[in-house]
């Protein structure tokens, strides 16, 4: 009962406790979506991109310097992402 009046501030700043309460609710609402994980739709999408880049262009798979450069760049860009959760 006291919560309602307690949290209301007319033109003032919220107390730390009120901020924490709001923060807790926000975090729970947000985390509830996060816990749903990755929908198949996005797994499929990213796997598809993988396939396209890796296999669907056999003519470019060899001897395309531009492509090799790009790969090098990617390797350098993500040295520590391997196995990250």
């Amino acid at each position: 009962m006291q919560t309602d009046a307690h949290i209301r501030k007319v033109g003032g700043r919220l107390s730390r406790e009120d901020q924490r309460r709001l923060g807790d609710i926000l975090q729970r609402v947000y985390d509830d979506v996060v816990r749903q994980g990755v929908p198949d739709r996005f797994k499929d999408l990213l796997n598809e991109l993988d396939d396209h880049d890796g296999e669907d262009e056999p003519s470019k798979a060899h001897g395309d310097p531009e492509r090799d450069d790009r790969r090098d760049h990617l390797v350098k860009a993500f040295p520590h992402n391997k196995g990250s959760s």
Binding site: V33, K43, F78, K82
Partner: peptide, 21 residues
């Protein structure tokens, strides 16, 4: 291939939070 997987894994890892946002 490995770096493709790395990019993909990093993106996949970000998806749940990205969706919530």
């Amino acid at each position: 291939m490995t770096m493709r997987s790395s990019v993909r894994d990093a993106m996949l890892a970000a998806v749940p939070s990205l969706r919530a946002f």
